[in-house]
Design a protein around this nucleic acid. Structure first.
Lengths: 196, 196
DNA sequence: TTGGCTATAGACCGGTCAGTCTAGTCTTGA
DNA sequence: TCAAGACTAGACTGACCGGTCTATAGCCAA
């Protein structure tokens, strides 16, 4: 399963993937659209056309374990993507813009219902394992940008701006139903980040 | 009721405010911490120590009407705040930084449970009146920055970056439980915005 | 005192929630 | 061929959800 399978969550994947992957794909797609508390187990089962027994077989920990798996999946995907882009010696600003454009097509494809990253997924209070998983994902992405930018104090600042403009831009764009806002903020941020 | 009452949601306000205001204050505080779907009516009633009848008397539309009122309240508060700051001819970057610092103290006071703005409040799908209310709030704040920055195309870009870095920075900071990330991203954004 | 209005009070309802449990069906390897 | 594990299947449970309903308390005007 790759990130592509998630982007077309239901029809295309149902045939090719195993139940566990289908559950993760559907759960991620739904959580990104409605947040953890906004999605019922029954929604996920309906989307995957699987019975309850399957879900609790693969994820004995229930809803939260499934959500953590979904977060882990998207975290790995994006982390790997960042690693491969940076390995080509691209400038951080260029990588950021590329990621933003991918988010735009994601937003458009889902009719602005999904948040491609993790921002709105949680809305859950402090100590849960789910929140921790989201936190870890953000840390890893931040670290990718930071090292790519040179690992200095200034690099840290710029990495923060990169992710913040991306997450914030997604939030703005999603609400306004216009990817324009995301592109504008990220473009400006990328400009600043590429300055040395 | 002012924005201050919300920041210390329970104890301080209980005595001074009427039931309706107490409901709005508690609802806003809870929604900011756990998102719309993460808060039960019973949570709000418990926080305000009011019976169900009172809530449905003041808000016949139930949970959603209360949430819309809460969004409207914070939208007005911040909009007014922005208007008054810009009226003093402050530079946009300075106003942004000031707002960010207020968000920081807000985050700290709530032990990083609340999102001071609206980003995580929704996690609700497209067409609802609540989503529309949040969208309107963002538009108004965006317009404040845009006009303060001169109303040009470039001003629009900068306004997007301002709000995106703020919303995104809050999201990062909240997850990492460190206001540092918010300050870093907003400071950098403010720098860029103040450039002419 | 009375009548009407605003607001409080909380029992109650049908629906839905996450999660459990038992039974059945595949797959696989000896 | 058969036994054992992996997986599917869905009825069932108790808790909790948002919302409705009736009853009552406080207040001010007639």
């Amino acid at each position: 399963m790759t990130i592509r399978d998630i982007e077309t969550p239901l029809a295309a994947t149902a045939a090719a993937l195993g139940s566990k992957e289908r559950l993760i794909a559907a759960a991620l797609s739904l959580f990104q659209a409605k947040g953890y508390h906004g999605v019922a187990i029954s929604d996920i089962l309906e989307a995957t056309d699987l019975p309850k027994g399957s879900l609790y077989h693969h994820f004995p920990g229930g809803k939260e374990e499934l959500a953590i798996a979904a977060v882990g999946f998207i975290a790995d995907e994006i982390d790997a993507r960042l690693a491969s882009e940076f390995a080509k010696n691209k400038r951080a600003g260029a990588v950021l813009l590329e990621l933003a454009h991918e988010c735009v097509s994601w937003l458009r494809r889902s009719d602005y219902t999904q948040t491609p990253l993790l921002g709105l997924l949680a809305a859950s209070p402090g100590e849960s394992a789910l929140t921790q998983a989201i936190c870890d994902a953000q840390k890893r992405w931040l670290a990718r940008f930071e090292t790519a930018l040179g690992g200095t104090e200034e690099a840290h600042d710029k990495a923060c701006l990169a992710l913040a403009s991306l997450e914030g831009g997604i939030s703005l764009a999603r609400m306004a139903r216009s990817s324009d806002l995301l592109i504008r903020s990220v473009t400006l941020a990328a400009l600043h980040i590429n300055q040395r």
